[in-house]
Design a binder for these strands. Sequence first.
DNA 1: GTAAGATGAGGTATCCTACT
DNA 2: AGTAGGATACCTCATCTTAC
Length: 232
Amino acid sequence: MNRSQRLLQLLQLLREHHFPVTAETLAHRLDVSVRTIYRDIETLKHQGANIAGEAGLGFQLQTGFFLPPMMWTENEIEALILGTRWVAHLPDDPLKQAATSILAKLQAILPEPQQRLFEQTTLYAINQWLPVNQDIVACIRLATRQQKKLHISYENEAGQQGERMVWPFTIGYFNDKMILAAWCELRGDFRHFRLDRVQACKVIDEYYPSYKKQLFQQWCISQRITITADRN
DNA sequence: GTAAGATGAGGTATCCTACT
DNA sequence: AGTAGGATACCTCATCTTAC
């Protein structure tokens, strides 16, 4: 690995951590000496990276510094295209539009060799989704994002109607259906609701008494689900 | 081919901060 | 105040690049 590659990888390692990481850890990951890490950090700082270093804590990349797109690898670009194309097929118009917009922006900013990769990539993930009400999807996503209580009218598999007050924290996308995972006030437990069976919903102007991330983690434990972390 | 300068890397001492 | 862990500075050596 040459120095340029190491600097990029060092930046990437710093980006992956939300907490300070010591030079020793970085040195171990990059297989260089601690002294080299300090020198590389200094170089990155001179190039504009906002890296905070504190004795006893380690280094942390501050917000406001982004990797330019030419630093993406071919695999990263294909992963991005595949994921975005998948989102573009969701029965969720705002997300669809966002995905289409991302693809357009991505194509516009990629340098020449990677533009060709973008144009020639034939990776697609196409799902057939059960029809859902767009207003309901938007409402549920809003309540989830804002961590607010949600009142839903729901029809279960047996065709029985029900009303629930829930704390929505995630939407899962499974093959052909979208599933809302939420804490149900009535049952006092986690419950799952198919979005195609939600008949009506209303965001209540009241924050639920927990953080969605916390609920999500508890739910993962209860369901024995291991989520690959996107950030450390 | 060789010498000089530039660059990269390691060792070690010192300074800084948190903790007890 | 003493100690430990980590960041920083200085020195030295090895390798690479360039000019002659």
